[in-house]
Design a protein around this nucleic acid. Sequence first.
DNA 1: TCAAAAAGTGTAGCGCGCACACTTTATGTT
DNA 2: AACATAAAGTGTGCGCGCTACACTTTTTGA
Lengths: 215, 215
Amino acid sequence: MTAYQSYPQFYVSVDCIIFGFAEGHLKVLIHQRPYEPGMGEQSLIGGFVQTNESVDSSAKRILKEFTGLDNVYMQQLAAYGEVERDPGERVISIVYYALINVDNYDQTFSDLHNAKWVDVDHLPTLCLDHRDMVQKARRKLGETIKNEPIGSNLLPRYFTLSLLQALYESILGTSIDKRNFRRAISEKDYIKPTGMIDKASSRRGATLYQFTMND
Amino acid sequence: MTAYQSYPQFYVSVDCIIFGFAEGHLKVLIHQRPYEPGMGEQSLIGGFVQTNESVDSSAKRILKEFTGLDNVYMQQLAAYGEVERDPGERVISIVYYALINVDNYDQTFSDLHNAKWVDVDHLPTLCLDHRDMVQKARRKLGETIKNEPIGSNLLPRYFTLSLLQALYESILGTSIDKRNFRRAISEKDYIKPTGMIDKASSRRGATLYQFTMND
DNA sequence: TCAAAAAGTGTAGCGCGCACACTTTATGTT
DNA sequence: AACATAAAGTGTGCGCGCTACACTTTTTGA
C-alpha cells in the first residue's frame, strides 16, 4: 500500500490543437462541446484520460477518434491547472498539438463530431481557456518550423515552393521574401525537387518538391 | 451536475527542479523521498496537488515548504503521464523548474527535509523519471538564458563577470571565450557595472556588476 | 623581487537574415 | 496572331552576430 491515499484525485483531460493547412491558411479543427457545462460551445478536440493509458496515448486515442488518423506528429504543449478553469468541476488539462495533412482527413468525421476547420487568424469564441492554448501552440509551432522539417506533416507528398512558402507565412504570420525563402529552402537537405511539374496551380507550371528525410 | 462523473480521477503531483548556483556549478536540490514506494531514495522536491489550489500555486507552495522562499522564478516544464512511471499508484506529474539564489536558502530547511544540493553534471541515481526531468529542465534553462536575464535569479545582487561566465558555462555545459563573453554582456542593457570592486575573489580585484531590469 | 592568479582588453573572418526587381513561361482573351 | 495576365524563377550586397585567437595589467603571497 502506498501513502498516497490521503491526497485528492482529479479529472485529467487532454485537449488537442489539430493543425491543418488548407486554402493557403493554417487551420485548427474544432467542434461543438458535447457535454455540460457549455454544451454546444466551440471547443478544441478533447477527452478524458483513462486509467489504462498514458497521457500521451490518451492524446493519440482522442486524435484517432476524431480524425481516423494514426501515426501523427504530436507534441505536448503544457498543462493547464487553474482551479476554476472549467466551470463544471475541477479538471486539469494536458494540451497537445498535432499536425495533419487535411487530404488524409476523412470528412465523414466532421459530420460525426460536428467538427470544422477554422482559420487560426480568425478564431471564433472558444470555450474555457482554449483560445489561449491555440495561440501558445501556434507560437511554438512557429519556433519549431524554422529548424525542423515538420512541414511534411501538413503538406501533400508533392508540393510547389509557393505552397510551402504560404505555409510558412501562415504559421509565422509574416510575409517572406520569395528569393530569400527559396534560397533558404534550397540549403535544407531534407527538401528536394522531384523532376515533376505541377500544371494545375499556375500557367507556367511549377516544380514539385518533396520532403526526403527518410530516403 | 456535470457529465464528468463517468471518468476516472488521478493523483496529480508536482515535481520541482530547484536550480541553484554554488561553488561555480549549477546545482539541483534533492532530498530523500519521504514515502513508499522508494522511501529513502533520492528524489526531486515534490508533492501532491490539493483541491483548493491551482497547479501553479501548488508548485509555489511546495517550493516554499522546502526552501522558505517566495516570489521565485518558476516555469512549467512538462507533464509526465506514463501509466507505470510510479511503481506505487498511477500518478500524473506536472514538472516545474525554479531558479533560486542559494544565499537566500536557509540551510535549516536542508536538515528538516534531508535535502542537499547536487551538481547537475554528477547527478546521483534519482527515483522514477526524475533524472529525465532534470536533463530536460537544464536544456530549457540553457535556451532561455541566452536571451533572457534570468541569471539574476541565481546570482547574488553583485557579482563579477567571471562568476557570471562560470554560471553560463555551467548551465550550457560549454566553455566560453572570455573576450566574446564580456563583449556580449556589455551589449546587454540589463547588466551594468556598479562602481564597486570585489577584492575577495582575486588578487587584482574585479568590477562588480548587477542586473538592472527594474531601474 | 618574483611567481602566480585572475582581470581586463580588440580584431578579423564567416555565415545568416534581410532588403530589393526583373525575366521567363504558358495560357486565355480579344 | 498578339497581347494581357499570372505565377515561377533567379543574385547581389549589407549589417549583425558568432567565433577564433593572445597578451598586458594588477595585486599578493612566497
